[in-house]
Simulated scan of single mutants.
Amino acid sequence: MLKPRTFLYAAVALAATLTLSSCAGGSPATDSANPSASQTTAAFNSADVTFAQMMIPHHEQAVQMSDDLLAKDGIEQSVIDIATEIKAAQEPEIAQLKDWLAAWGEDESSMSGMDGMGGGSDGMMSDNDMMALQDASGVEASTLFLEQMTVHHEGAVAMAQLEIDDGENADAQAMAATIVKTQTAEIAVMAELLASL
């Protein structure tokens, strides 16, 4: 588990560095002319922006996975409960992340984007993964959901930890801390549920 997180950290750090260097025009003297640096409405930096831009599609996919599972018959109540909990936690966070980006004058999508991470290190499911979950039923669907969401959560926790380490916006860092706490707890619950299926 450590390797994907380490890879994710390196990849996001590289993306952030490239973003910063492109904003700065490669010259430290231009840093003071950076428009985002002069916005005092809410203190934020490139790590905050990257966190919000990457977490929105990440959360949206988790909500879609939960919806796909909740639409099925014959699912254990305990699995329904965790899917419902995940959806209820992440939908308001998506709205908040979008609000922050709007307030910061940033686009919701990044040029580097989720696709730029590669290798699934961010925990995002592929189209084939999503199709497999949609097509599965009963215990197979529950198992697949729990396995996929565990990987998905691990990616989110790693992304949130980067925000805690490198972000500047206090509200975004608070959300990141909440994500680390709640999703780490959910990973433990999902491991127990998997063992019981």
Score class of each variant (00 low, 15 high):
51 F>P: 00
63 V>Q: 02
56 I>D: 00
102 A>D: 13
40 T>L: 15
99 D>K: 15
80 I>R: 14
104 W>D: 12
93 E>T: 07
31 D>T: 08
84 T>Q: 11
43 A>E: 12
49 V>Y: 01
107 D>E: 15
53 Q>W: 02
84 T>A: 12
103 A>C: 06
60 E>N: 08
66 S>M: 06
91 E>M: 14
47 A>G: 05
42 A>E: 15
90 Q>R: 09
39 Q>S: 07
67 D>H: 04
87 K>S: 08
78 S>Q: 04
77 Q>M: 03
79 V>K: 02
96 Q>V: 13
87 K>L: 05
106 E>R: 12
95 A>R: 14
72 K>E: 04
102 A>K: 12
80 I>Y: 09
94 I>R: 09
106 E>G: 10
112 S>R: 05
72 K>C: 07
99 D>F: 09
98 K>C: 08
62 A>Q: 00
28 P>W: 04
110 S>M: 15
65 M>R: 02
40 T>Q: 09
71 A>H: 03
67 D>K: 10
38 S>P: 06
47 A>D: 15
37 A>C: 07
69 L>H: 02
51 F>L: 02
83 A>P: 00
80 I>L: 08
56 I>F: 02
39 Q>M: 11
30 T>P: 00
96 Q>T: 15
50 T>N: 01
51 F>Y: 10
52 A>L: 08
84 T>N: 13
70 L>K: 06
84 T>V: 05
43 A>Q: 09
43 A>Y: 05
42 A>D: 03
86 I>W: 02
30 T>G: 06
93 E>H: 11
54 M>D: 06
96 Q>K: 12
43 A>P: 05
110 S>T: 11
58 H>F: 02
35 P>L: 10
52 A>N: 04
61 Q>F: 01
33 A>Y: 10
41 T>R: 15
70 L>W: 06
92 P>I: 08
63 V>D: 03
59 H>W: 03
101 L>Y: 04
34 N>F: 13
77 Q>Y: 05
35 P>V: 07
57 P>D: 05
98 K>R: 14
64 Q>Y: 09
76 E>Q: 13
79 V>D: 00
106 E>C: 10
33 A>T: 13
92 P>R: 07
71 A>Q: 08
108 E>W: 14
59 H>S: 03
111 M>Q: 12
38 S>A: 13
55 M>D: 06
49 V>N: 03
40 T>V: 11
30 T>N: 13
53 Q>D: 01
43 A>H: 07
74 G>C: 07
89 A>C: 11
47 A>P: 04
58 H>N: 00
53 Q>I: 01
48 D>M: 05
85 E>M: 03
54 M>I: 10
82 I>M: 04
36 S>G: 10
104 W>Y: 08
82 I>Q: 03
28 P>T: 14
75 I>E: 00
87 K>Q: 13
75 I>R: 02
50 T>Q: 11
36 S>D: 15
97 L>N: 03
38 S>F: 10
38 S>G: 12
101 L>S: 11
110 S>K: 07
40 T>R: 13
98 K>T: 09
87 K>G: 11
42 A>C: 08
56 I>M: 00
89 A>S: 05
40 T>S: 14
94 I>M: 10
108 E>M: 14
49 V>S: 01
104 W>G: 05
32 S>R: 07
48 D>S: 05
57 P>R: 04
31 D>Q: 11
57 P>L: 03
73 D>W: 06
34 N>G: 03
112 S>E: 14
69 L>E: 00
100 W>K: 10
43 A>V: 12
75 I>P: 01
63 V>R: 01
106 E>Q: 14
74 G>R: 02
